[in-house]
Design a protein around this nucleic acid. Structure first.
Lengths: 150, 150
DNA sequence: AGCCGTAATTCGCACCACGAACTACTCCGA
DNA sequence: TCGGAGTAGTTCGTGGTGCGAATTACGGCT
């Protein structure tokens, strides 16, 4: 089947299927914390630091209106709050609430644990190798800090 | 930052960020074909073979009602069609229409091309290595054929 | 002071996910 | 042969999500 050449068994297919797998595990973990994947992602991004809306939109790669909605719902759920920016009356800063912080920590830790199980069939050296190669791909493509490390 | 230990710079963080990256590229490609990511995924899965709804639900890991909706919308867009199953009056088979087949081929090829560019910073040997390791992770976790190779 | 640009929100719309309940069909045992 | 249990898919209700256009409020520059 000609189409296996690109998407089939090579690195391309593997990347897409790995994304499918990670998304499923991430969604399942989020669900058990009463979160949607998008909400979980927002909490992970805000763990450790706050962002103004414009930055956040860039990190999450969302349209402004989509981000407004996501923050609205998360604020309504008591997980985040908005603050005015001192230097700019137009800008709004988004931070985790105390409750949001706790939930984010727990969700993040549990999701790490679950994702960590995915490469269980690889040796320690192979895990390091995979992490290194994938890390370079992610670095080269300038992926924002959507999961840890910010 | 303690939380880098798990999600930060290791294989866990790399997997999640790689998924974020692949999802973004996939969504952008789909968008340019007038498709949503879910519709693109449905077309890719149906490329090459048809499925009954129950199987399709398993492959795409969707609730039955979600799949019904997705197939409804894709049918309305002229991309797929439903057929009764001879052996089982309850079951419905989903296939690509002629138009759906053409669009699926083009979407699949273009998405392969774009995903193929992501590991451009790696050498040929490193690409092979990455594909091999990731392929094993995907195999070990029994990821269904959501992109090529079925 | 006015104009242009920016930040965020609102609006309208379509898509998407799920669980519960329902309809239609299948199969098996009495 | 019939009835009951189970299966396949759909419908319904609900909430979440994504985007673009338009709007409101603010900032900076002339």
């Amino acid at each position: 089947m000609a189409k296996s050449e690109g998407g089939g068994s090579g690195v391309v297919g593997a990347l897409v299927r790995a994304a499918f797998l990670v998304d499923a595990v991430y969604a399942e973990s989020a669900r058990e914390f009463g979160l949607t994947p998008q909400q979980g992602q927002l909490l992970c991004v805000l763990l450790g630091r706050s962002y103004v809306m414009g930055e956040l939109g860039g990190v999450l790669r969302l349209a402004k209106s989509s981000l407004t909605g996501l923050v609205d719902r998360s604020e309504r759920n008591g997980l985040v709050r908005r603050e005015s920016c001192e230097g700019d009356g137009r800008a709004v800063r988004v931070l985790l609430t105390a409750e949001g912080e706790v939930l984010a920590e727990r969700f993040y830790a549990e999701t790490c644990r679950r994702i960590d199980e995915l490469p269980a069939g690889l040796s320690e050296a192979e895990r390091e190798l995979l992490g290194g190669l994938l890390g370079r791909v992610v670095l080269d493509n300038k992926v924002p800090p959507v999961f840890g490390e910010q």
